[in-house]
Structures are given as structure tokens and as C-alpha cells.
């Protein structure tokens, strides 16, 4: 069953200089299209991963999903409710309660002046819910001790803080947790602990994750379905096996070959060419065509539509 339906999601940021500067320097308004026409479905109790490099718009999608940013166009529907357009306050609140988020930086995501107990129960306390013993129970569930409830965040290491963030996310008993690079600030051995914890909790509470990451190996480990983003557009969507064994979009192929691998000693393959273009002036047609080894004239003229190909969805004119 579909929990989240994302349809033609677009987000445009106004990155113009202030009015006076524009007048003096005779510049036009500048717009950055961070996310452009992205559609996908997240099935209940599954892990949907968004991968991409910087500027791919993956975090922006995450923020629109949880309602921190309104979409410019398109819609995010969670159980059929569009957070940005729904006017029934009770319905909005019910949906909000079902969504939580885990952030990248465990040092910035906990209020340094609050005790762990107050941090964890805030999602429930702010709605006037009963919180007696809740923090202690959740702390034990994420592998910390109930005694930690009285401490302040600075007394914990990065991995422990991320566990506290997970405990806070669980407090309101959500259905969906958006995880924005949850382990990229952590060391490998700590990352393993946190990823295992997240898998366990998913099974225990029947959670759905939207997992945002730049790390392909982590994504492969966690995800049931993976969407690859390039410059704000979804270029390929597939299950992990299909994506890693048979990548169809040239960008996916490039990403996979560029990712460092543990069993590729002294590998000397030619590295990918070029860099991610300026998102304010993206290339015409397929945004990847200047770096693409199989690009044809059509690629710079026409933007490829998403099409189904052997169990995957891919946005490429030439992929076979």
C-alpha cells in the first residue's frame, strides 16, 4: 500500500541579490530549480532511498515531504492528505504526527540547553500528551540507558546523539521517518550500529523510511527501492539489485563506477569526467548530456521522460 505519493514535485528558490543590487548591477532575478518534476511512490513498511550528489535536490525533497518547505508545484500526499494544501487543521495535525525526521548533524539537531528527557518527549508534550516514563523507555529502546534522560546533549558522542534523535523521532509513534543523511557524520563502526538499530526499529514498529544519502553502499544495504537524482530530477528508479547489477542510466553507471570499493585495490579505471553543472543555469535537454559518454544530439534538445525499462524507471533517450 502506498504511504507517500509524490507527484510532479517542483521547488524553485529565488536566489536573486537584493533589489537595490539588482538595479545597480542591472541583473535579472535569478531562480534556482532545486527539485523539478519529481514523482515517486513510497510503499508502506518499505525503505525508499534517494541518492545523489550535492545539488541533486535530495534534501529539499525531504523537507517538502515533512512539510518544512512548501512545494512550488506538484504535491506530496501522505495517506491521501496534501500537507501544503489541506485546510482541515485536525487532519493536518494527524498527518504531522505520522511524520518524523532524523537529521544529518547530530551536534546541531539537539537543543544544547535542554535535557535529553525534554528533547525526547517534546513531540508528545507539545500536544499535551502523557509523557511519564516515556523518555526512559525510548532511551532503552535505542540502546542507551534510562539514566541518560537527565543529562545534556554535550555529554554524548555523535553516535549516541543520533540515537537520541531516533528516540525523539519515535516518541510520537510515527509511520514515516525521513532520514536525511543520518549516518554521514558518523564513523564507520558507529554507522554500523546506527544502521542496524534503524533496521531493527523498522521491523519492530512497522516504520517506513525515506532514506536520503550520498553513500551508495549504505543505500544498497538499507533500501527496498532507490531513486537516483541528478540536478533536481529523478533519472532512474529501481530496486537495489536491478540498480546495482544493471544500472540503466549513464549517470547511475558513472556513480557506481566512481564510488570507492573495498575490493578494488589500486584500481586504475579512468575517473568520470566533468563536474556537476551550475543549477541556476542547468544544461538544456537532459541535464547530464555534457558529461555523458553516449550523448546524441537529441539529448541536448529534448528532456527525456521517465519510462519503464526492465523493472526500472529511467529518464534517458538512449538507455536500452
Amino acid at each position: 500500500m502506498t504511504l507517500v505519493a509524490v507527484r510532479n514535485l517542483t521547488r524553485i528558490f529565488d536566489v536573486s541579490k537584493p533589489w537595490l543590487n539588482r538595479v545597480v548591477e542591472r541583473r535579472k532575478k535569478a531562480f534556482l530549480t532545486a527539485v523539478s518534476d519529481v514523482s515517486f511512490d513510497v510503499a508502506e513498511r518499505s525503505v525508499y532511498a534517494l541518492v545523489g550528489e550535492s545539488g541533486s535536490g535530495k534534501s529539499t525533497i525531504g523537507k517538502m515531504l515533512v512539510g518544512l518547505l512548501p512545494p512550488s508545484e506538484g504535491a506530496v500526499k501522505i495517506r491521501g492528505t496534501d500537507l501544503a494544501r489541506e485546510t482541515d487543521a485536525a487532519k493536518v495535525d494527524a498527518v504531522r504526527r505520522d511524520i518524523q525526521m532524523i537529521f544529518q548533524d547530530p551536534f546541531a539537531s539537539l537543543n544544547p540547553r535542554w535535557r535529553v528527557r525534554d528533547i525526547i518527549v517534546e513531540p508528545v508534550a507539545s500536544r499535551g500528551g502523557e509523557t511519564e516514563g516515556m523518555a526512559e523507555r525510548l532511551l532503552e529502546q535505542v540502546g542507551l540507558s534510562a539514566r541518560d534522560a537527565g543529562k545534556f546533549p554535550h555529554e554524548f558522542s555523535g553516535g549516541q546523539r543520533q540515537r537520541i534523535c531516533i528516540a525523539r523521532a519515535l516518541a510520537s509513534e510515527p509511520k514515516l521517518i525521513v532520514c536525511d543523511e543520518p549516518t554521514s557524520a558518523l564513523d564507520v563502526s558507529v554507522q554500523a550500529q546506527v544502521l542496524n538499530l534503524m533496521s531493527d526499529l523498522k521491523d519492530e514498529f512497522g516504520l517506513t523510511y525515506l532514506f536520503i544519502s550520498h553513500d551508495l553502499t549504505v543505500v544498497q544495504h538499507m533500501a527496498d527501492r532507490i531513486g537516483v537524482l541528478y540536478l533536481g530530477r529523478l533519472v532512474e528508479e529501481a530496486g537495489p539489485d536491478a540498480l546495482f547489477d544493471d544500472p540503466k542510466h549513464p549517470y547511475t553507471q558513472m556513480l557506481l563506477s566512481a564510488a570507492p570499493q573495498l575490493d578494488n585495490f589500486g584500481r586504475d579505471v579512468p575517473p568520470p569526467t566533468g563536474e556537476i553543472p551550475d543549477p541556476i543555469n542547468p544544461p538544456t535537454g537532459c541535464a547530464f548530456h555534457p558529461r555523458c559518454s553516449i550523448a546524441q544530439p537529441v539529448c541536448s534538445r529534448e528532456r527525456p521522460e521517465m519510462r519503464d525499462l526492465r523493472g526500472a524507471r529511467v529518464a534517458c533517450h538512449l538507455a536500452e
Binding site: L68, F103, S109, N111, S126
Partner: peptide, 16 residues
Amino acid sequence: KEYVQAARLIGRGPGA
């Protein structure tokens, strides 16, 4: 900072 985003996420108002 992300802790403020986390508070907005759960529906806390600007005053709080």
C-alpha cells in the same frame, strides 16, 4: 540549526 527544524516539524509555533 536542525533542532529548530525538528521543533517546527512537530508543529511548534513561532512563539514557542
